[in-house]
Structures are given as structure tokens and as C-alpha cells.
Amino acid sequence: MISASPHQYRAGGRALGRPEPLLDAALAQASRPEANGAPAILTLKHLANRMEVSHKFLRSIVGDKEGAHYRDFYISKRNGGRRRIAVPSTELMAVQRWIVREILRNQPVHPASFAYARGKSIYACALRHAGAGWLLKLDIHDFFDADFSHLRQFQVIL
């Protein structure tokens, strides 16, 4: 944790020749996620160091527009047709599991969310809608195959 020892962080930054305003900004940025039980991640290189993976590998994941880190296979659907399953490479799966273990697992789930939440069930979700005057049910066709490449930036608030 950066904010657990700001003096050591600052001393290390000074030894590397980093300017004081940059060190101040890094410490300020680190305090928010760490206050919420998440690790501070200041740069992609910092993330690579924390995950103990190569910076070059993480850059290849971030820049991958072709899905090179996934292996596709297909399974049959009940209604005919096929469903594409994309399995991450062993290295990418390790990165994803680190993110789940070190960042996401410690974050509270929104009270309205029932999917994949420990202690919640389909039954409990259905009870929230019992007795409603109406229910809107929809299916987004090929949601997981949708092309989201036009979305360039995401901001995650922890």
C-alpha cells in the first residue's frame, strides 16, 4: 500500500528523481482506492509490477483489438444455432483472476444486483418483482458478440 507508508514512497520517488508535485499527486490518487480496500494502481507499469507480470504483456492486452489473447470455440444452443465461447489465454486468465482477487472481491455488491452475488438467488430476485403491476422482459440479441470497439475509455470508480 502506498498510503500506508507515504514517507517511504516519497523517499523512493525522490531517489528516482521524480518531482514533488508528481509524488503529491500519486499519494493523493492512491488514498481513494486504498480507503475503499482496493490497491492503488497508478500506471500500467505499476499494475504489472504489482501483478508480477511483464509490462510488455499488459500493453499487448490493452492494445489487442483482434482478440489474440482468446481462443474461441462453439457450443450448440437449444434453439439450433451456435454460441461462441471465448476462453482467455492462461496468462490473461491469471491477470483476470488477480483483478478479481485483489480488487473486485473486496468491493460491495450493489443491493439491486443479484447475479453472481454470494447469498443472493434467482428466487430472492423474483420476490422483488412479485405483485408488480407489470414486468418488462427483454433479450439483447447477441449482446456478448456486440462490437464495443467504439468505446475507447472506461473509468472505474472504486
Score class of each variant (00 low, 15 high):
residue 6 P to D: 03
residue 6 P to Q: 04
residue 10 R to A: 14
residue 11 A to M: 04
residue 14 R to K: 12
residue 14 R to G: 09
residue 16 L to I: 02
residue 17 G to Q: 04
residue 17 G to F: 06
residue 18 R to E: 10
residue 21 P to W: 12
residue 23 L to A: 04
residue 23 L to W: 03
residue 25 A to D: 11
residue 25 A to E: 11
residue 26 A to Q: 14
residue 30 A to Q: 08
residue 30 A to F: 10
residue 35 A to W: 01
residue 36 N to M: 14
residue 37 G to E: 02
residue 38 A to N: 09
residue 40 A to F: 09
residue 41 I to F: 11
residue 41 I to G: 08
residue 41 I to V: 15
residue 53 V to Q: 07
residue 54 S to R: 13
residue 60 S to T: 15
residue 61 I to S: 06
residue 62 V to P: 09
residue 71 R to N: 02
residue 74 Y to M: 02
residue 76 S to V: 09
residue 79 N to K: 15
residue 83 R to L: 11
residue 84 R to V: 13
residue 85 I to Y: 06
residue 87 V to E: 15
residue 87 V to D: 14
residue 89 S to K: 04
residue 92 L to F: 15
residue 97 R to L: 15
residue 102 E to V: 04
residue 103 I to K: 06
residue 103 I to E: 07
residue 103 I to P: 08
residue 107 Q to R: 12
residue 111 P to S: 03
residue 117 A to Q: 11
residue 119 G to K: 00
residue 123 Y to S: 05
residue 124 A to K: 04
residue 128 R to P: 04
residue 128 R to K: 14
residue 129 H to K: 11
residue 129 H to Q: 13
residue 134 W to F: 11
residue 138 L to T: 13
residue 138 L to V: 05
residue 147 D to N: 15
residue 149 S to P: 06
residue 151 L to R: 10
residue 152 R to P: 03
residue 154 F to P: 00
